[in-house]
Design a protein around this nucleic acid. Sequence first.
DNA 1: CCTGGTACCTACTCGCGAGTAAGACTACTG
DNA 2: CAGTAGTCTTACTCGCGAGTAGGTACCAGG
Lengths: 211, 211
Amino acid sequence: MRTEGRAKRLPRAVRERQIMDAAVDVFSRLGFHAASMDEISDVAGISKPMLYAYLGSKEELFATCIRREATRMIEAIATGVEPDQEPDVQLWSGLRAFFGFVGENRASWQVLHRQASSQGGPFAAELADMRGRAVSLVAALLTQSTKAPATTLEAESLAAALVGAGESLADWWLDHPEEPAGVVAARLMNLVWMGFGDLVDGNVWHPPSRR
Amino acid sequence: MRTEGRAKRLPRAVRERQIMDAAVDVFSRLGFHAASMDEISDVAGISKPMLYAYLGSKEELFATCIRREATRMIEAIATGVEPDQEPDVQLWSGLRAFFGFVGENRASWQVLHRQASSQGGPFAAELADMRGRAVSLVAALLTQSTKAPATTLEAESLAAALVGAGESLADWWLDHPEEPAGVVAARLMNLVWMGFGDLVDGNVWHPPSRR
DNA sequence: CCTGGTACCTACTCGCGAGTAAGACTACTG
DNA sequence: CAGTAGTCTTACTCGCGAGTAGGTACCAGG
């Protein structure tokens, strides 16, 4: 990057998008601390003072990245999930949307999951918010469909486990990108819906054939 | 820490243990980058050159921490699991051992899970090794007990999801420490053995009453 | 053509933290 | 009571990266 001399004049909004894209890229590859403002400005194709003029300090920039990517992801999932369906179908559509997003936005996922969570302070809070939304969605799904009345704590911890399983499987997927998203999603669906107990007996969950 | 002037003379082995303990503590609280060698030496109650004399560079020190804590953890689980038992009992004993360890070694867990995995390079590899051992253990358990012959990839990804669920639930537990380890372990056991499908119908897994 | 305003740049300051040189203190060994 | 081996310290160097001061190119409207 940054071979030509001076950057072309561009309206502020466009520049800001470029910078954000560059920042997500660099943060995802290097992590918050190891990423330098010099490198980000370099990848963005501008000079350092522009970074500060537009997006403020390094911490502000990082927080902005988290917020933008988290919002994109939440929206992708919210759009994908089909309400007013049976619980298993709701879960299935949610999982598909999640893995679909991760597959097409690896860098975003890296930043959100690996970087944000390992930084202390306000960043973790930023992420905890997103995660909390996912967890309570699942917890609500579980609570409303279960027959045995579960405590809030129970539902919440189960949801945390499920969300964590999804995150982890997504990480695993990064190392095995040859698998299609649908297959990975189906595996997780089987694990959390059927359980090992059924799986070892050969009982498998299948998506509904039509809708 | 570090109020008195000069530290008492101690044999090398003892000092090294002190330093390692201090390093795990600081790394777990601050993360690899934010942790400074000055602070570690301060907490350990000695001066910085001693750090370098005994444990080498910052990266070497961190890697040594990872290795030590990972080994302690693997051993705790290996000791806890009961082979020659039914698959569900094996899994159950493994989960109990895992949550037991995390409960009594929060700092170790923080370092292993949060810090090591978010640092690139050799640290991630160090951790991937430990994680790989856990994953293949579970994968073997699953493969040998399943009736439908599953592919390696399938077993491995399911195991990754399970291990991830455990890691995530352990993280959740850090924020809800009032819950006893056994209860948390039982929740995960139910999720992965029974599955939501059974749980919403009120079917629950119980540990065998005697042994 | 001049006058401003805004996007953009080069070239710094400055603190923080990894790593080290050189020496002081302690304790055992003959 | 040396001598010496290993523990421990103070007090530095030095590079890297966050953040900035001050100036340059480019585009309006007059």
